[in-house]
Nucleic acid binder design. Structure first.
Lengths: 349, 349
DNA sequence: AGGTGCTGTGGGAGCGCTCCCATGTGTGAT
DNA sequence: ATCACACATGGGAGCGCTCCCACAGCACCT
């Protein structure tokens, strides 16, 4: 553990912490040189670097972040903005995985991570002020709806940002997404390979690009398996459990002969499972069920749910890395990275 | 939504945001006066204040936090330090409630909240540097073990801190705690009032002061109900589900005749429930079960678990308020606040 | 008329850094 | 030996604010 004696300078309102200047004096070099060493500039001789590093260690010097921020016009902080209410943020493992990934990428740097929930209007207003005040160098945007105003705001303020999940095929922001199309395709191909013929799907809100991709993947897999498309086998929902229930009832009413369901989220699959149970259908004997997200819900479901795993933690790490590059370079490249998904087969299919 | 035109100053690396000086010029007053208005000093005439406020609004002035921090030698940020690994932090509703409460108290101020997990040694080291660098004005310490070094570190660095849950009866830090003794007492009194005679308890780690208080409350309730103390009815555990299972097996082996169990946490109660089930005991018919924390676990258990509710959110709010006062006043009062608990009776008792 | 004590205000100094220009100091080519 | 040009280094200027001292203006007393 770091343990250090506190020295107090004779006068003034000093805090007793050593400054750059004091380190410079100790090392017998100039202020600029110490600054270069601290910031890892290559333009310092090895000898000098060693002397300075010794002085830093002896004095227990730690840079004053506020001074650095003021002089360099940056904050060394990035915000993870989650436009969701607090309870959802904590409830969904999605976010904790994301935070873990982001944290991992940031651990190397001395960037500070600010968690910002922007669920309510009040919080969004505060966020607006926050961004206007340029109190962060960049923003990680998670779970954004297509019509959200935050991306525009960031654009206006020219604050570097990375979004998780593209808002459309023509996403303009830097984005890190998982391969929703391929994930859905593989899930449905898996059902077809097991001999299922009447494969239904419960979609997410189709104004969410990822939900549309999953639907496209579903259709592609059907086509590849030589199964004719059937509009009655597609039921729209909204990513909620209740929506899943409603859609499942709808499907059951329309196509009692269905033998498999691909739900575009685990939560919707949970709703579907309940309705299937009530209707006396056995899973997977009568109806196979596959979800998406591979969340805790999937593992704890009875029977355990086959699901498409998204590499959330890796997405978080990648987002942070991309953002750091954007902040660094400001090249305006805006990379779009798509990470692969993985089908996790369990009992429900 | 805040929407503001970005003006760019002709040269330099300026960000285009107005400064105090520009507001002063606009309002036709001095820099100091604007500063006084911004900071709510009473030493400004009403007329001047109005003029300055108009200028602030016109220019869309937002103070530069870094400059303020540098000049005033404070950071306007506090850290919520959780010495737990990431997964526990997100898993337990305890923390989300706590964050909500703290957030509520901070919403008024422009204090920034930093979440700091110090579960691993690596993270603790980083935290040490963080604190040494005085990057926060104060610290909220949650879920601290008796032998933790963080409180000492804070003391050494004379950083204001508030702890949740006292470490001992003689807590030296400012603390906000719930009334563990009274919570346990009321839970056990409730069991006794329902005619239970052989009331066992599964304790938490007794080096945690709160766990000791709960045990004391249990004993006090037994005494008050005229039930003889019986050492065989007390099984130590460690707040985990597995510990709860182990303790329950132990109790069942030692005292097959027990008709009630008070577990010092809901999670341990969940473990106990499982063992009771396996042993063929019906809840609450054969054995009544009461937990502590009133977490989601309690509500979702089958049967729903009677539990002692701690006002976590209120504790968070109170902690933040106390900390703000400490930072403000530095009076060295170190208040110790104990908040009442509430017994929530459900099906398990 | 001069003193005394307010309140309100202006602006200098300085917080601890980074940036950058000016100044050495050493190397190799001429 | 001389010039050119690298690299290494020192330190001035300045980031935008707070703190605080100085001073103006006014009311009230002696």
């Amino acid at each position: 553990m770091v343990s250090r004696t506190i020295r107090t300078r004779s006068g003034g309102r000093g805090t007793g912490r050593p400054t750059l200047e004091e380190v410079a004096a100790r090392a017998g070099v100039g202020r600029g040189t110490v600054s270069r060493v601290i910031n890892g500039s290559p333009r310092v001789s090895d000898r000098t670097r060693a002397v300075v590093e010794a002085a830093v260690a002896e004095l227990g010097y730690v840079p004053n972040r506020a001074a650095r921020a003021l002089a360099a016009n940056r904050t060394d902080a990035i915000a993870l903005v989650v436009p969701e209410p607090e309870d959802r943020f904590f409830a969904e493992p999605y976010f904790s995985d994301m935070v873990r990934g982001v944290g991992a990428a940031l651990a190397e740097t001395d960037m500070q991570l600010l968690l910002t929930l922007a669920g309510s209007d009040r919080e969004r207003r505060r966020l607006g002020q926050y961004l206007a005040a340029h109190r962060v160098d960049g923003v990680l945007l998670v779970s954004v709806h297509a019509d959200d105003s935050i991306p525009d705001m960031l654009e206006d303020l020219s604050i570097p940002a990375v979004i998780s999940g593209r808002r459309s095929a023509a996403e303009t922001l830097a984005a890190v997404d998982s391969d929703n199309f391929e994930g859905a395709r593989s899930a449905v191909a898996h059902l077809a390979a097991r001999g299922r013929r009447a494969i239904a799907t419960i979609t997410g809100r189709l104004d969410v690009y990822g939900a549309q991709c999953r639907l496209d993947g579903y259709r592609a897999a059907l086509a590849a398996a030589g199964l004719p498309p059937d509009a009655r086998l597609t039921a729209p929902a909204d990513f909620t459990e209740e929506g899943g229930r409603r859609a499942m009832r709808e499907l059951l009413g329309r196509c009692p002969e269905l033998d498999a369901v691909f739900a575009a989220s685990d939560v919707m699959a949970a709703g579907a499972r309940q309705v299937l149970r009530e209707a006396g259908r056995r899973i997977p004997d009568d109806v196979a069920l596959v979800g998406f997200d591979d969340s805790a819900v999937a593992r704890h479901m009875d029977p355990a749910l086959t699901s498409v795993r998204q590499p959330i933690e890796e997405m978080g790490r990648t987002m942070a890395e991309v953002l750091l590059q954007e902040i660094e370079g400001r090249t305006g490249e805006r990379p779009q990275i798509v990470l692969p998904t993985e089908l996790v087969v369990r009992e429900s299919s």
